[in-house]
Design a protein around this nucleic acid. Structure first.
Length: 200
DNA sequence: TACCGG
DNA sequence: CCCGGT
């Protein structure tokens, strides 16, 4: 029940924004009463935090599991690309803006995730990929990891979406692709393209 | 579902 | 008036 509520919440919040979706909407679409929701969650702030937190946790666990494999570099990249396609495709920049402005607790969680999980994860995959010959030997993993995180942040920043010409998912995919092709060896490039192909 | 209060 | 919360 709790999970159902969280799934509905994250879907609706992502698509339509955190403020436009009311607790009543969540209740109706989850097929429960508001009372049930408030038994599970203290208030809307908590629901917002838990809902997005669920996604972050899932992805973190998945990526950790992949990296527990000796190789796993290409699998990691393929999963990340899929994550971008599936999660960010329906993420309205307004939702990000609203979380940032009106749900500081939830926003802190995002920042924490970004500054800890993502950075260390990228450093790890870059070093591993270099060692295994997927990425060029000359690259400076620290510098590139930081640059990549800044790239991701920029693509999430709602202020970069004043005109609604380009979608967030397209920007994220384009940046990831461009970043990877800047560091791939021929072996890495081939393996990645194959991996993406197989994943479709 | 009705209702209160911010 | 709307919506979070009871």
């Amino acid at each position: 029940m709790r999970k159902k509520i969280l799934e509905v919440a994250v879907e609706q919040f992502s698509r339509y924004g955190v403020r436009t979706i009311t607790m009543e909407d969540i209740a109706r679409l989850s097929g429960v009463s508001k009372k049930t929701i408030y038994q599970e969650f203290k208030d809307k702030k908590e629901l917002v935090k838990e809902a997005f937190g669920m996604l972050l946790k899932e992805d973190q666990e998945k990526l950790d599991a992949i990296m527990r494999d000796e190789d796993g570099v290409i699998e990691h990249l393929v999963y990340t690309s899929r994550m971008i396609r599936e999660r960010i495709a329906n993420l309205n920049p307004m939702a990000v803006l609203e979380v940032q402005r009106y749900f500081p607790e939830a926003w802190k969680m995002f920042e924490c995730f970004r500054d800890n999980v993502i950075v260390t994860d990228i450093v790890k995959v870059l070093e591993r990929g270099k060692k295994l010959g997927y990425f060029r030997n000359e690259i400076n993993t620290r510098i590139l990891a930081r640059m990549r995180v800044n790239q991701i942040n920029a693509a999430f920043d709602p202020s970069n979406y004043s005109g609604e010409d380009v979608k967030m998912v397209d920007i994220q995919m384009e940046l990831m692709d461009h970043f990877l092709h800047g560091i791939f060896t021929e072996k890495g490039r081939q393996a990645y393209l194959e991996g993406v192909e197989l994943n479709h």
